[in-house]
Amino acid sequence: MLRFAHRTKPMHTELIQGLQRQDRNALSKLYDMYSSALYGVVLRIVQSPELAQQVLQDTFLKVWRNSGSYDSSKGRLFTWLLNIARNTAIDATRTAHFRNKQKTEGTESLVSRPGNDAINPDHLGVREAVNALDEKYRTLIDLIYFKGYTQEEVAEETGIPIGTVKTRLRYAMNELRKVFGETNALAFLMLAEAIRQVLK
């Protein structure tokens, strides 16, 4: 783990330094690396491609303006980006329009699958591994990690006792780390990057 972590850092350091001195190429690179993953998450929260695109745009503009507030000692760049994207998306869902839409659609769509243009995990050789993760754990991670639910909110939403939510989350995280081990993760990153280049 340590070895991999150190290997990925110089690339990010360069990116972050670029962002912090307002180099537009750095933002362009950052967008190429992370826009798809962020868009997938945002799309799940706001449920509308138009709104999701607006949220994605706002997210990167916030990143551009607040790049100085990122502290690499407190976590990975992607975690920081995801937090901004998630908060922006949640703010966007607080509009009256969105609330009305949600009422008619119900809570089922909260755990919907991404669209056809999602990067197919099959190509990445991790689909089986992801599928191996039980649906109930995946739903838990989706609600908490992608949608920013607190564990209490998950308990309320799903009717599962809070203690069970906490236990399942611990288990889900362990399983996730088994799926995306160090070797897998590096291969995954390279493949994801290759696919992004092809899709561009």
Partner: peptide, 15 residues
Amino acid sequence: ELALEQYAQTQAVVP
């Protein structure tokens, strides 16, 4: 975080 990031990448949608 890396594990979570990889999981997020499996759910990626190209904007």
